[in-house]
Amino acid sequence: MEYPSKLIEEAVNEVSKLPGIGKKTALRLVLHLIKETEHQTFALTEALNKLRKNIRYCNTCFNISDNEECAICTSHRRDKSIVCVVEESKDVMAIENTAQYTGVYHVLGGVISPIQGVGPGDLQIESLVLRVSKSTEIKEIILALNPTMEGDTTSFYLNRKLQGLPVKVTSIARGVPVGGDLEYADEITLGRSITARTLFH
């Protein structure tokens, strides 16, 4: 596409690098920004600058945090004996939104995938093992990784690394979604929920 200005082109190129945003959407956003007041655009760039400069990760669980320790890790109301292991910070947010979990987290920062060059050393795996072995409080580790081939491999690896430590390792259940239709559930999910059925109470 031909742009009327080099400035527009540069801005479009940068914005379209964001996930889920193509060239057309990027152009719409850029044109919208220049229509707005200068103040509004600078508020955005300022927020982004501050985000980039000051963002940090919790020293304990590696979730995104404003301080050295995140709000969840420092809270007195959280149960420190249960640690839920997730891939990314967005998974913490998803589980927090359920309001069903009162334990703490550990964010790996991804999953193992040798094809993409991601090994255990690139993830927060050693820090998890260290955290568990140093703690006297932790009783249970919940593996809550995505049910993909890489997620399963990583769970298997974590379970191995945690063997020998005095903790119970559990995994989130897989099954039929609420409000779903058995007929349309895929065979693997349905098969798993049959074999891992629970007592009705």
Binding site: I112, G119, P120, D152, T153, T154, F156, Y157, R160, K161
Partner: peptide, 12 residues
């Protein structure tokens, strides 16, 4: 060689 990691693939 990371034996545990290899085992993670072998089990599938």
């Amino acid at each position: 060689v990371d034996q545990d990691l290899l085992a993670s693939y072998d089990h599938r």
